[in-house]
Structures are given as structure tokens and as C-alpha cells.
């Protein structure tokens, strides 16, 4: 039956795979990540660079090998060798499997783990800026503790979207100087940032693309992230866990300012006329 196929046809298939392999690598090399702005982010970027280089090589090699075997196989009338000795099979595939396994596992252990533990084990420095983020459909409530460094009490029962979205207890003296904004936050350059994340309704995920920070906010839990901005600038906050209709535009602004500018900004937010959504 139709088991014979033309050499030309097989060769085009071989060229397709070779082309996709080389073209894919060329395209991939042209892509850049959002510009980096945090200290631990350098570690994450080196993790990604390691993977891009190693898997890039394996990808091109694999696709070219596939293309080569098809190219030569299409020109062969009789098979070269019928069976390979089982020991050879185990040696060849085992060695390659082990090599790729080591690349993968080595990446996790040698590069990934130190970055991971630096990020999660970091005890926040004493001068860290603490900010509480309370996510809700579809905005970020931002709260600074004010001069006393203490957040005022709040409770879910007192939450009201119009008058009191965070459910603040107005009687608590610790809360008097709390600074509350929506969707806008700023931090001073040179100090660590400590974010205390909460959610009022569904799962959100706090994503700062430039800082390589992404943390799901599961309601009922209060995850904390600590990181260290490395340059001034204006950046974006995105939600990266499906949270409902306006998930795609739950946008916030994250500004890294000079210490003086930050103090001015915070003072502006504290006056009753300022603040609110930008």
C-alpha cells in the first residue's frame, strides 16, 4: 500500500524540524524580560539565564538530531542495524537521561535553592518599610503604619466598600496616623520593603514584574514578602491569579522614590485632601 514516500517529501519534513529548532532559538534569544529593579531578582534572572542557555542548547540539538535522522533515514533502503544490545541501550539513554537530569536537578540545587532561601529566609532589616496590601475585587488597598510603626486594629465585620474598605477601628490610637491609599504605593530607595499581603474576597496574586516578586494572596492567610529595590522609577502592579471580571485591569502603581521624595509623598497622602485612587 501507500507505504513508500518520496525522498523529497521526507526531506522537507526534516527541514521543517531543523528550521523550527534554529528559528525558535533565534526568536527566543531576541526576547528580553521586564527591566530588573530588585536585588533578589538578579538571582532569579541568573536562574532563568542558566535554563535558557542549557535548554536552548538541548532544544536545538534535539531538533537537529531529529531532522538529521529523518533526512538520512529517508535515503536508506535497508535498515543499518536491527537490534542494539540491551546494555548499550541502557548506557546511551541512561547517560543522556542522567545528563539532562543533572542539568535540571543541578539548576535547582546549585542556583535555585540559594536564591529561594535568600528570598524566603530573609529576616526583614529593622529599617524596612512595612506596607500592608489588602486585595479585593478589583483593587489594591495600601496601608502604611505611620510614624508610630503600628497598624491600627481592623476587622472584617467593620469593612464597608464605600466608607471603610479596610474595616478600620477608628477608636484605636495606633490607627490614627495610618496612611491609606488605593492602587498607589511608594517606597524609598535604599531600604528593604516588607509587604504584608491580605485578601478580602477571592485569591489574588501580587505581581511586580520588574521586581521578580509574585505571591498568591489566599484569603485567610497573611503571606509576607521582603525584597530590596535597586533603582528609582515608576513600576506596575498586576494581579496574576484569576480573580473575576476585571482581573485583567487590576492595575496598581509602585513607585521607588528617593528617601526625601518618599517622605514628602507619604506626608501628602496623610493629608485628608490627598490619597484615594490615582
Amino acid at each position: 500500500m501507500s507505504t513508500q514516500t518520496s525522498v523529497f517529501h521526507s526531506s522537507t519534513v526534516a527541514l521543517l524540524f531543523a528550521g523550527l529548532g534554529l528559528g525558535g532559538a533565534w526568536y527566543g534569544a531576541s526576547i528580553v524580560m521586564p527591566s530588573l529593579a530588585s536585588r533578589h531578582g538578579a538571582g532569579i534572572d541568573s536562574m532563568l539565564s542558566y535554563l535558557l542557555v542549557t535548554t536552548g542548547i538541548l532544544f536545538v540539538a534535539g531538533y537537529c538530531a531529529l531532522a538529521w535522522f529523518i533526512w538520512t533515514g529517508a535515503r536508506r533502503r535497508r535498515i543499518d542495524q536491527r537490534l542494539t544490545r540491551r546494555r548499550t541501550e541502557w548506557l546511551v539513554s541512561g547517560a543522556l537521561g542522567l545528563a539532562v537530569g543533572l542539568i535540571a536537578e543541578g539548576g535547582v540545587l546549585a542556583i535555585g535553592m540559594p536564591v529561594w532561601s535568600e528570598y524566603f529566609d530573609a529576616t526583614p532589616p529593622a529599617d524596612a518599610v512595612t506596607v500592608e496590601i489588602t486585595a479585593q475585587q478589583f483593587l489594591w488597598n495600601v496601608r502604611y503604619p505611620g510614624a508610630d510603626g503600628q497598624f491600627g486594629r481592623n476587622s472584617a465585620a467593620a469593612m464597608d466598600d464605600v466608607s471603610n474598605p479596610l474595616g478600620l477601628d477608628r477608636a484605636d490610637p495606633a490607627g490614627r496616623d495610618d496612611v491609606v491609599t488605593q492602587n498607589v504605593m511608594a517606597v524609598p530607595l535604599g531600604r528593604a520593603v516588607r509587604l504584608r499581603l491580605r485578601s478580602k474576597d477571592v485569591i489574588h496574586s501580587f505581581f511586580l514584574p520588574n521586581f521578580r516578586v509574585k505571591q498568591d494572596i489566599v484569603p485567610g492567610m497573611t503571606p509576607e514578602v521582603v525584597f530590596f529595590p535597586t533603582r528609582e522609577g515608576s513600576f506596575e502592579i498586576a494581579c496574576s491569579e484569576l480573580c473575576g471580571l476585571a482581573h485583567y485591569r487590576m492595575r496598581g502603581f509602585f513607585d521607588v522614590l528617593s528617601p526625601a521624595a518618599f517622605d514628602r509623598w507619604l506626608a501628602e497622602q496623610a493629608t485628608p485632601t490627598a490619597g484615594g485612587p490615582r
Binding site: 514516500t5 533515514g73 535498515i79 541501550e89
Partner: peptide
């Protein structure tokens, strides 16, 4: 991949 190597390939 190695199953392809050395075969007499018919690209059906």
C-alpha cells in the same frame, strides 16, 4: 529519537 536512527524511514 534513537528508534529513528538508522531506520529506513517512510514518511507516511
Amino acid at each position: 529519537l534513537a528508534s529513528l536512527r538508522g531506520g529506513a524511514i517512510r514518511m507516511g
